[in-house]
Nucleic acid binder design. Sequence first.
DNA 1: AATGAATGAGCTTTCATTCAT
DNA 2: GATGAATGAAAGCTCATTCAT
Lengths: 190, 190, 190, 190
Amino acid sequence: MIKPEKRDEIIRAAMELIAEHGFHGAPMALVAERAGVAAGTIYRYFESKDDLIRETHARLEGQILAALTEDYPATQPVRERFLHIGRKLVEYFIASPMEFRFMEQFFNSPYGAAHRREKLFGNKEKSIIFKLFEEALEQQIIKPLPLPVLCALTFGPLVDVCRDHALEFIVLDEALIAQTVAACWDGVKL
Amino acid sequence: MIKPEKRDEIIRAAMELIAEHGFHGAPMALVAERAGVAAGTIYRYFESKDDLIRETHARLEGQILAALTEDYPATQPVRERFLHIGRKLVEYFIASPMEFRFMEQFFNSPYGAAHRREKLFGNKEKSIIFKLFEEALEQQIIKPLPLPVLCALTFGPLVDVCRDHALEFIVLDEALIAQTVAACWDGVKL
Amino acid sequence: MIKPEKRDEIIRAAMELIAEHGFHGAPMALVAERAGVAAGTIYRYFESKDDLIRETHARLEGQILAALTEDYPATQPVRERFLHIGRKLVEYFIASPMEFRFMEQFFNSPYGAAHRREKLFGNKEKSIIFKLFEEALEQQIIKPLPLPVLCALTFGPLVDVCRDHALEFIVLDEALIAQTVAACWDGVKL
Amino acid sequence: MIKPEKRDEIIRAAMELIAEHGFHGAPMALVAERAGVAAGTIYRYFESKDDLIRETHARLEGQILAALTEDYPATQPVRERFLHIGRKLVEYFIASPMEFRFMEQFFNSPYGAAHRREKLFGNKEKSIIFKLFEEALEQQIIKPLPLPVLCALTFGPLVDVCRDHALEFIVLDEALIAQTVAACWDGVKL
DNA sequence: AATGAATGAGCTTTCATTCAT
DNA sequence: GATGAATGAAAGCTCATTCAT
């Protein structure tokens, strides 16, 4: 009988090590040790290290989506909804620095590029963010730019400031978060 | 005797391989082969692989600075100067995809974080970009945000769109570059 | 309680996998899966992988003996009986390529050497082939050579041509089989 | 500067270990240790374990060919030449049991099958043995059988008796060797 | 100054066997 | 009796760095 808590432990260990030391600083033996299992055990739950990494990301992506949509003001105007998502994103990453560092490693790697390609051109359901921008474009309240450019202008800076916060280059308090998210909107609004 | 052209060849080879395959896809033996020197020779010019990578970055940073300041409209208002630098940056990265990929690898790694820390808190001369923002802050034409946040709101998205162009998610033509750089300014302007 | 049909399934699965991929391409987990049992279950029927392999061979040896002695012309002269056995052996191996490949794997391994040693020097009943050669030696119709040499001169080539047939180096039809078996006899006859 | 004696040592170590324990009983670490080099060093001389094995075989094949053609009676009739080669082959294998066991391992493996396929259907120069049989076929002094069958009837048994000698099932002295080689010829002669 | 052969710790993954359920 | 999750030693191979030449 597969024990889900063992799978969880492995994912947690992998996330921690990758967040701290990158993919190459997270050998399977160390992941196993930190998860409290034998090295071979990992391969009962994951096909390969690649698979473990992708699954770790998938798990995290679900958590982040949940954080973004908590108290989501679905009936409010687009701008309020954007501000909500942006704020929640930054708050989540600040509250979960380990998760943030993992996501950084993930997106700054071939895994991330493949994942974004799939999001943009694959047949999966559009993300909440894409839908938000498409609605804004229809309402002609933001500049008519390609989706990737809109993302770069908005969520790009948000991730960047989270990184700078993690590196202690800045301190993101509630006020600065609000200002920054608002500034992102100013960049794309018409 | 140290021959500068040999040093150059090693840096060129390292940049190519790192841009193409990442740090871990650029073994010293391959760098040596591509540079036309013996593996041991690299260590006469550079202390270690780390050192080689940092020197490679330093060389590239000089080139990029030169590109940004070409035809620099030093007497124009801050906004025009920002638009100039932003446009030049994107154009340089699009025209030099190899150099761009190297910089991506560099900044998405502990090297990049250390480098940025040094820029922010070290005693070196301030970069042209920092000086530009400080001037704009004095003139009260941009939002009073910390320097890292201003960078995140402006150059962050520019690098992001260059990456998306390199990945062929978008096609950056002259018009789109101009629009994007302008949007970055809109994000920070008062 | 031991269920013989489960034992059979395990042996069948082991034979298939070993024939296809060799001993090292037949992990116990795969044998178990193909046999429709759990990995641990195999160890209730067999002490070890070694034991399973030996038992698989023993089972097969029985089948082969049955094939060789089908329509056995017990009252005919030695030569006719040899030709019968030789022809049956080749026909069996050609009709049962999987069984042949297993036997090849088995005999070209320490298992095979041990098995032959037991046959030659053990206390078990003599094989039909040994008895045939001893009768021929008594009748002084074959060269007075040690039993292993006689086997090498007769069944050795037969196995070799079966292998070449399996590898598609040659095509063994009825005529060629007859010629080859006859040639083997020519090698040992006086 | 590549040192040929180091290459030789590695090949010797590999041959010894493979002869004694088979391919799977010859891990690269052990080969390295026995050769007196570091594990990584082997990969300066050979691309992979596969490559090392093939090169070991190639080296040995050259030696065997030299042994077979020593004092070759090129002007004598085909039969005498066959008897010469057969005798030399057995003598070589008896005098070099380690080399013999390596060749056994090699031919009873996918390496051997590939090698024989290449010999039979490749464009390389025909071996001395193939040339001998073709000459005999032209002179109509042996049975008109396919080349692989002729080999199976002659060199097959010779290898088999060498194996039985190595296993101490028989003792091959000069007389028995001569008898056995002659018997092989009897099998194919017309 | 330059070479490049040598090092050996380190990597991901496999698999025969055990044992708690 | 049967299960299958867990084990952990071992495999082939890589590569930053050293040092005798």
